[in-house]
Simulated assay, not measured.
Amino acid sequence: MEFTCAAQPGTGADDEADLVVTGSHFALVLGGAEEGCRHLGRWRTRALGGRLADELVRRPDAPLTALLDAALAGVREFHHRQLCLGGAPGAPSSVAVVRERDGLLDLLVRGGAAALVQFPDVTVNAVLAPADGGAPGGPAPEAAVGSLPVKDLSRVCLLGGGAHRMAEPYEAYWPYLFDRFATDGPGAVLTATPYRGAAAALGTPRP
């Protein structure tokens, strides 16, 4: 898939900045950070984003839940080696991942993020995680996962927690949201968010 993306911290909240990472066959959006040690939410989000992207590149066929758990474990191990005694690092409060694999699109969503899938008839289905916050520094909370053939969809949009809260009240207009993202780019849409951090990625199948 081809991805366009944007992220912004929100007014006065750069330590809560959301993060978007894309690769040749994946995109991920991380948002916020649960309370944990003294490290800023920005550090924890970037640390997990880098490790999760590495897992997606090195293990392209592994289940997304296994990759997320491995990335979280890697962040905790690194954190422990730094001798931070202020508690376990809090995990980002929202995670959304899509990965293209053998003609399929794999999705994972946890926390307050969302994955919106648009089909050729313009209908939009939302993939949302169960309401389970999990414990700071613990295993990844329950996530929604699924797969569908790439040929059956027209576009997919990942929304971090802030972007999802901005879009959620306008569910009936989600097809219009896809058009705005495609025409103006995610950044133009996210500038209107009042929340502490917002990130989004739009994926379109390659011709």
Rank of each mutant, 00 (worst) to 15 (best):
R42E: 15
Y195V: 00
A188T: 10
D132R: 10
A131I: 03
P169A: 11
V127G: 01
C37Q: 02
A66K: 04
L64M: 10
P89C: 06
A96T: 07
G36Y: 05
D179S: 09
P9N: 13
P149H: 13
L107D: 00
A192I: 00
T11F: 11
L128E: 14
L56D: 08
G197I: 03
D132V: 14
V98C: 10
P120M: 13
L148C: 04
T11S: 13
R51I: 02
Q82K: 10
L153E: 05
L105E: 04
T4R: 15
D61G: 08
L83M: 07
P9R: 12
G49Q: 07
P194G: 06
H80W: 11
M1R: 04
E55P: 00
W174H: 06
A140W: 01
G74Q: 10
F178T: 03
T193G: 12
V29R: 09
G50P: 00
R99L: 13
H164F: 14
E55M: 11
H39W: 14
G23R: 09
P169I: 08
V20L: 12
G49N: 08
G112V: 01
V150N: 01
P149T: 07
L159W: 07
A7P: 00
V150R: 11
A131P: 00
S94A: 15
R46L: 12
L64Q: 07
V150F: 06
G134S: 05
A131E: 15
E77N: 02
R99I: 01
E142T: 12
A47Y: 02
V20A: 14
L158C: 10
L104K: 04
L30Y: 08
F119K: 08
E35H: 11
P207C: 04
A6Y: 11
P169Y: 13
P141C: 08
F119G: 00
P194H: 11
A201T: 03
Y170C: 02
H80F: 09
R180C: 12
R44K: 15
G185H: 10
G146D: 06
Y173L: 14
T65A: 15
Y176G: 07
D106V: 01
P89A: 09
A47C: 08
A73Y: 03
A114N: 02
L116N: 05
G134M: 09
